[in-house]
């Protein structure tokens, strides 16, 4: 079920001022059904007109809470950063398909780049509870722009890369992945910038590769067919409804 809920903001704090925020909202219905990798659409103010799609960072099913880790990029996310505890916010969700979580006792890499790390936290918690062995690989631009690492450390081992080498390994996340013994890994789940996802496609034969895509969306419900990505068979799929998570083999990245 998809719900439209007016939820009370419990907390909206900056992890990096004017850039990275973590908001927690009381959303009883959405929390009940949200799966790792799904997203919500948020009405952030009178303008922008369209809702902003934000992926789900964490869900507290017992208390009906949904948390979102987001980056201020434009007017919508700027508005979102201005919401204060106690205010109400209009949200539609949960939307999209989510990652495959019916895995047991497997070796899984969770790879995130930039704000693409957001959906991996709830995903990691769910996969860990099923007895899987996990490792997070998180990529940031530099140490000063790294965030939320402690959340991930509570779930599993974390390795970090930064483009300038100021924290962890220097370079993109591939520098870490290529040093690992991939033969032991059964699945890679990833979300982040397109070059990162393209790089990971080279493992599509060896592991279960699932990639979460980002796209400019209209409705978020699959109706307007705006946010399409090209599949390997040449057809288009809707990122909001058929995704945002796709098997690595399904996506071509040609366009």
């Amino acid at each position: 079920m998809i719900y439209k809920e007016i939820g009370k903001v419990l907390e909206n704090k900056a992890l990096i001022k004017d850039s990275i925020y973590l908001i927690t909202i009381d959303l009883q219905n959405i929390a009940k059904e949200a799966l790792p990798g799904q997203f919500v659409e948020i009405k952030t103010g009178d303008l922008p007109l369209l809702r902003k799609p934000i992926s789900i960072f964490d869900v507290d099913k017992n208390n009906g809470l949904v948390s979102l880790l987001y980056q201020v990029r434009g007017k919508g996310t700027k508005n979102l950063s201005g919401f204060k505890s106690g205010e109400y916010i209009d949200i539609i969700g949960p939307l999209g398909n989510g990652f495959t979580i019916d895995k047991k006792e497997q070796e899984i890499l969770l790879v995130g780049g930039g704000i693409g790390i957001a959906p991996l936290y709830y995903l990691g918690k769910e996969l860990k509870s099923k007895g899987n062995s996990l490792k997070f690989i998180l990529g940031y631009s530099c140490k000063d722009e790294s965030y939320a690492v402690d959340f991930f450390r509570q779930v599993a081992e974390v390795e970090i890369s930064t483009m300038d080498g100021s924290l962890g390994c220097k370079g993109h996340v591939g520098r870490i992945v290529e040093k690992l013994d991939i033969s032991k890994v059964t699945a890679i789940y990833a979300c982040g910038p397109e070059p990162m996802l393209k790089y990971l496609k080279k493992f599509e034969q060896e592991v279960d590769l699932e990639l979460s895509l980002e796209a400019y969306m209209g409705c978020g419900l699959g109706a307007c067919i705006s946010c399409v990505c090209e599949k390997t068979d040449g057809s288009y799929a809707r990122v909001c409804k058929d995704g945002p998570v796709f098997k690595g083999k399904e996506i071509s990245f040609n366009e």
């Binding site: 303008l47 922008p48 007109l49 369209l50 796209a215 400019y216 969306m217 209209g218 307007c224 067919i225 705006s226 946010c227 399409v228 990505c229 040449g234 057809s235 288009y236 366009e255």
Partner: peptide, 23 residues
């Protein structure tokens, strides 16, 4: 019809431009 290549939609000046291409 497969429709047009993305990007197919953008918000501008309080409205929305779309070019889906009758997918």
């Amino acid at each position: 019809r497969r429709g047009n290549q993305p990007q197919r939609l953008v918000e501008t000046a309080g409205g929305v431009i779309n070019s889906i291409g009758l997918a």
